[in-house]
Amino acid sequence: MDIQELETGQVTVLAINGRIDSTNAIDLGNKLRALYAQPGRRLLLDLQEIEYISSAGFRTLLIALRRAADTGGRLALCGLTSKVRELFDMGGFLDNFSIKPTRDEGVNSLA
């Protein structure tokens, strides 16, 4: 997994490349925890380039969602491929996350 971080105005975009699974979800979790250590953080996760995501990755995203709420921050997702969206649907998570089709729309939704 490779995470590219870029700032767009008040929004921090994390573009994730590769797989998010049981062996590396902890790395993403640590990254998100460090970012949300700053109160009011607005974060967009671009999932366009992920190879796959397993339940360990979903656990990390759910924790990030709670952390965002606890720190006055926000979290949005973008770039879900049809397979990734299918798993969000299977898990019943589509309504829990703010999901935008493109990075621009994601950034705008948080700006």
Binding site: R19, D21, S22, T23, E51, Y52, I53, S54, S55, A56, L87
Partner: peptide, 10 residues
């Protein structure tokens, strides 16, 4: 297949 293997082995 990747998801299933990750879930079961982990």
């Amino acid at each position: 297949i990747n998801v299933v293997l990750d879930e079961l082995i982990s």
